[in-house]
Amino acid sequence: MSRLLLPLQQHPRTADQPADSLLHALKRLPRRVQQVFLLNRLDQLPFAEIAARLGLPLLAIERHLNQALQTTREPGDALASVAIQWYVRLQSPEVTASERIDFRRWLDAAPEHLHAFHQTELRWRSLQAPARLLGQDGWYRQGRAALSLGGCSVTIALGLAALAALGLWA
């Protein structure tokens, strides 16, 4: 998502959300969504490369990025929600010419649409600093197995504890 579709002014963050609330919103996301978001935002990997690296379909990458951006918008802002969906979809390698035409029609239908899309681009830019904090130790660059290992080790430990409690492990 490194290329932008409209010219933008340089703003460090949107006025409606400071960086700490954006970081908090990102931390509440599922770990896989965070990973996809960070690979795209920090490492600027395209959808296809993220999908190949994580063994996920392109649609899942799109859905995860959409989820990440949706958590940063104001609740109840339906226009922002639509703008975010367009923003993410337009970055997908699976976007069709017909969808691009539909987007252009949506954008031209009302000045509010252009403003909402512009705000989405500003919001995307404002996520750079919180993303750096969220991914500062590089955890997100680990593959699928490394992320899953944490849950597996907890399950194994609980299983061994249960066996020990029943006296079957000694």
Rank of each mutant, 00 (worst) to 15 (best):
D137W: 09
S126W: 01
L133Q: 15
A80Y: 11
L133G: 08
I156N: 01
A157G: 13
I84E: 00
A109H: 07
A145P: 03
L134C: 05
F117W: 05
R100S: 06
L122H: 09
P93G: 02
G143C: 05
W86C: 09
L149H: 08
L134K: 00
L90D: 12
L158I: 00
E112W: 01
S98P: 01
T120K: 02
G135L: 06
Q142M: 09
L147C: 04
G159I: 02
A110F: 02
D108S: 07
G143R: 03
L122A: 07
S126A: 15
V88F: 13
L133D: 11
I84D: 03
H115V: 14
Q119Y: 03
A157K: 14
T120F: 00
R141M: 12
L107V: 03
L114M: 07
P111S: 12
D77L: 05
Y140C: 05
D108Q: 13
R132Y: 04
G150E: 11
L79T: 08
V95L: 13
S98K: 12
R89A: 13
W124Y: 15
G138F: 01
R123C: 07
D108T: 01
F117P: 00
L147W: 07
G76H: 08
A161P: 08
I156F: 12
W124E: 04
A131E: 04
